[in-house]
């Protein structure tokens, strides 16, 4: 079991390392570098050489990679080409703001999805299920920017309850993001809930039809006890992985949402850095997102392993 855990952790670390190599190579292959971007038209002759000298860009790629990686492990992501500031400092608040957005969506979305999924499975093909399932399909198929725009139209333009865009600066205290942050959270929650709900619904239906659920009923177990003791623990196992995938998707989803709402988070910073060709920042954010992605999936795997007795005991027996 412990060996298994270490193996998974090791694999996770290797994945992050490979991603970092790919990101670095990708940026390497792009024409131009931080200096050409920074100097723009003056990027020639002595000026360019000096700049490269300053930033250390004229050294071999391997050396630069090692240095970058070493820094990244210690939390130093390099220096932004644009403002010549340490990236860690720039990223800090942005990361916090994105986490506010994501955790809001996760805290609202997961319980809601589990609840609605279970309810629509237990009342399968009844009005509740039909309404919930139909709404879920809408939420899944309408692109985030469309639903975002619709929500802005209804809640800020027509009703005037919340501002449609966020004007709070990135480094403001968290409370100042309320109530503006509620709209983007709602949009993310909608899509997230729909995905998780559908998986939960189908796996609960499957578990309800299982032999062990039938056996529990024939053993005289009351309906609700059967649902909570026999069906749900088994049905919710597959949900763990879908939740992890959805959270990972969320990190990509925020890029669009933050742009629509002008929200000062990691996603918008990434878009800005790309349009500014601020390559060190792009590199750093890509690495952060990849790490979170790997981390979330790793956590889901471990959780599944702990929650599923079949997997949990397998390694003890074989070992």
């Amino acid at each position: 079991m412990l060996a298994m855990l270490f193996r998974r952790l090791g694999l996770g670390a290797i994945t992050v390392w490979l991603v970092s190599v790919i990101i670095f190579l990708g940026v390497e292959m792009l024409p131009g570098d931080a200096c050409t971007a920074f100097l723009e038209r003056e990027a020639k002759g002595k000026l360019l050489e000096n700049c490269r000298e300053d930033l250390g860009l004229n050294r071999p790629a391997l050396m630069r990679y090692t240095e970058w990686a070493k820094g990244a492990v210690q939390g130093d992501l390099g220096v932004s080409a644009k403002g010549q500031k340490p990236i860690s400092e720039l990223v800090g608040y942005r990361l916090r703001n994105t986490l506010l957005l994501a955790s809001g969506a996760i805290l609202a979305g997961i319980p809601l999805a589990l609840f609605l999924g279970v309810v629509s499975a237990l009342w399968r093909d009844r009005p509740v299920d039909i309404v919930v399932s139909t709404l879920a399909i809408f939420a899944m198929t309408i692109p985030e920017f469309v639903s975002a725009t619709l929500l802005i139209l209804v809640f800020s333009v027509w009703l005037g309850w919340v501002p449609g865009i966020v004007l709070t600066p990135a480094n403001a205290p968290l409370v100042e993001f309320f109530p503006e942050v509620l709209l983007p959270i709602t949009v993310l929650t909608l899509v997230m809930t729909a995905h998780i709900l559908r998986t939960v619904r189908s796996s609960v239906i499957e578990a309800l039809a299982s032999d062990y659920a039938q056996m529990a009923r024939l053993k005289g177990v009351p309906y609700w006890q059967m649902v909570f003791r026999h069906v749900l623990p088994n049905a919710l196992l597959p949900a763990i992985n879908v939740i992890a995938l959805t959270i990972a998707w969320l990190l990509g989803g925020v890029v669009v949402i933050e742009t629509v709402f002008n929200y000062p988070g990691l996603g918008r910073m990434m878009i800005d850095s790309i349009s500014d060709r601020d390559l060190p920042v792009t590199q750093a954010i890509a690495l952060i997102i990849a790490t979170v992605y790997v981390g979330v999936n790793l956590a889901a795997d471990i959780l599944t392993l702990l929650a599923n007795p079949r997997l949990r005991t397998m390694h003890i027996r074989k070992g």
Partner: peptide, 16 residues
């Protein structure tokens, strides 16, 4: 009145 099912492997709840 008790039942003994056909496939006990699938009739016992896997998580209990």
């Amino acid at each position: 009145l008790a039942l003994i099912p056909q496939n006990s492997g699938q009739s016992l709840t896997p998580t209990l």
